[in-house]
Design a protein around this nucleic acid. Structure first.
Lengths: 218, 218
DNA sequence: CATCCATGTTCACACCGTACACACCTGGCC
DNA sequence: GGCCAGGTGTGTACGGTGTGAACATGGATG
């Protein structure tokens, strides 16, 4: 029952299907997920998937959760690699910078997962009005925490805290999308890097109310 | 030859197919464009499309151009409706505000076309390095013009002009995408309106470098 | 009138998602 | 131990899709 694999029942088909779906989406995005090909790769008949998912969309959504956590992991890794010898205020600002740059880099290097992670979740929950925090996903929560920490360390004036997450997420997500799908995509990497840095710095300066540097420090 | 329709040759099948494809994408986005259904609606056999497009993707790209010009029209209409009694500097700022809000509104009210307009254009042109302005689409050109006009009227310091288009486009496009696909989508309209306004104002202030509270721990 | 060729048609194929009926294990009952 | 129930995977089938190859048409051109 425990270590006997491949008998007739798979053992943990659900997770195997999700993993394979995520693998396929990595290259071609959500559209590249084929239910038949996923089941084929796992070595099971196409209809076996219907024992674990309502339909193809249901499988894709499960894979999307996987992609979101991959994004969250990329961000936390980059945040953890920050230099340790900073004042609390500067450290919290550095953290925001790293959240933004990691988000953008993820969109560029893992375009398929980025598309997958940002899929429209279909219907609003039956409940009447949804508080935003209710369906917040991990990557967004990381941003909220970071901004809160900036307030604690004095790097962000408390009256600037409200709505700051939208300004930050908008500009970083927007540039990430442009870098992944827009015209910027065909530019050389170092050009995109420079643009990304400029956008993130402008965003940080914008939420803090300090004026952005017109020139780039070498 | 001229007014004889429906004989055997369609007359202007190419444009008819593009129009129908755009019509289908309006509701469900690019994925909702079905080559067979498009040809069916136009009253022609599926493979007739292959006389005018290399494959389905080619048709979708043609429809995407249509969506882009619809976005450009929405923006110019909103810009044209600006109050006429403003100083040049204020008028140019008001114009930037209207470009941003029109972009966001288009994403919310014409989600399918918004997705369609922002499709990844596949391969970079055979030419080595592409200047960005080369493949600039109409909506982006409107933004560039607006920023240039702000410099002319003194509403934007010339040294802040470079890269300003990326800061603006990023945050506005990012919020548009979040409002169209992200969690914000399920919020009541007036909440989204308020957020949109806040994001646009923050973007304008950020680009111009105007903000009140001086708080510099650096 | 004869002919060319762009345009549209027909047939065929492989693939997809999925509904339905059936086959197989496995765990809980007697 | 034997048996039954039900969760899990299979087989078959249907209608949909994009697309290739061969064929038909009919308007423009000699």
């Amino acid at each position: 029952m425990s270590s006997l694999a491949r008998s007739y029942h798979h053992g943990d088909l659900r997770h195997a299907l999700i993993a394979e779906a995520a693998r396929q989406a990595r290259a071609g995005g959500p559209a590249a997920i084929s239910l038949r090909e996923v089941t084929r790769a796992v070595g099971v008949s196409p209809n076996a998937a219907y024992r674990h998912f309502a339909d193809r969309d249901d499988l894709v959504r499960a894979a999307a959760a996987e992609a979101q956590s991959a994004l969250a992991r990329a961000i936390t890794a980059r945040v953890a690699a920050a230099p340790p010898d900073l004042t609390p205020a500067l450290a919290s600002i550095e953290r925001l910078r790293r959240v933004g740059l990691a988000y953008i880099d993820f969109a560029r290097t893992e375009r398929g997962w980025f598309e997958l992670a940002f899929l429209t979740q279909d219907p609003q929950p039956s409940e009447g009005i949804v508080t935003l925090d209710a369906e917040v996903v991990a990557p967004f929560q990381l941003l909220l925490d970071t901004l809160d920490r900036m307030v604690q360390t004095g790097a962000l004036a408390p009256q600037r805290r409200p709505l700051a997450e939208w300004a930050c997420w908008s500009s970083v997500h927007g540039f990430a999308d442009i870098a992944a799908h827009g015209p910027v995509r065909w530019q050389p990497d170092d050009v995109v890097d420079a643009l990304a840095e400029a956008v993130v710095e402008a965003t940080i300066a914008g939420v803090r109310g300090t004026s952005a540097p017109p020139d780039e420090p070498a």
